[in-house]
Write a protein that binds this DNA or RNA. Sequence first.
DNA 1: AGTAGATCCTGGCGGC
DNA 2: TGCCGCCAGGATCTAC
Length: 264
Amino acid sequence: MPELPDVEGFRRILDSCGRGRQIEKVQVTDPGVLHGVSAGRLRRALEGRRLTAPGRHGKWLIARTEGGPALLLHFGMTGQLLCRAPDDPPHRYDRVRLDLGGQHGLRYRDQRKLQGLWLAASAADVEHVLAGQGPDALSVDRETFRDLLAGRRATVKAVLMDQSALAGLGNLLSDEILWRARLHPARPANGLTYDDSRALHSVMRRTLRLSVRAGRVPDRRSWLTGHRNDAHPRCPRCHGPLRSGRIAGRTTVSCPHCQGGDPP
DNA sequence: AGTAGATCCTGGCGGC
DNA sequence: TGCCGCCAGGATCTAC
């Protein structure tokens, strides 16, 4: 389930594998992942273009070309970006392939096709596709973060996961961050104190930095994420039983002891 | 403004 | 064994 750290990993793959190289051939093996563009138009728009420094906003990856259009990639739950030689055997979930000359190539691989690829004709068009995204969770400053929480009556978990409020966090990271900050996920966002939001911001940044370094949310046993799929999960901090429920429509794991039994 | 629920999509899993 | 329904959680839409 790609969240900000995973997509940041894909950005690095795109950078090391594709930057400076020319897109020689675009192969769409499943047009079902294309949004608002046909396979033919995608091919005509990208073939012959040279990839430049890629960007990322939240869970979006931006593959820019020199003086040309940009390809926007969203990985849904199961998507990934791989650097593979064009003659590497195809995988059944390879949906789009970019051949970059020689032994270089990129593949958009995705089992469930919940999201996919968008084509942006220009920088302004990139902004258009990304309109409505909140600030990136890795670069949002403390005051902006505090204000976006203070302006919402929804639960703090719902706001953390809302891409229009804050871009980049998914279900796993939200639970991890709230657990580390010792905040109950069902607390109303606008009920957090100044100190709460300050601590939450700091914990979020630290958790994101560690996750980006690992290329994903680590499922180490010292992390909440390393326990959430256990039959009888216990808190790695206090060793009490973890609680599993649904908040904002998502499975939510938290520690009743560390994060409070009931939200105030 | 907020939540719940359906939808999209595919595969793994438990139950019968 | 095989079929059914549920669940996973990325997002969006409608209904309340």
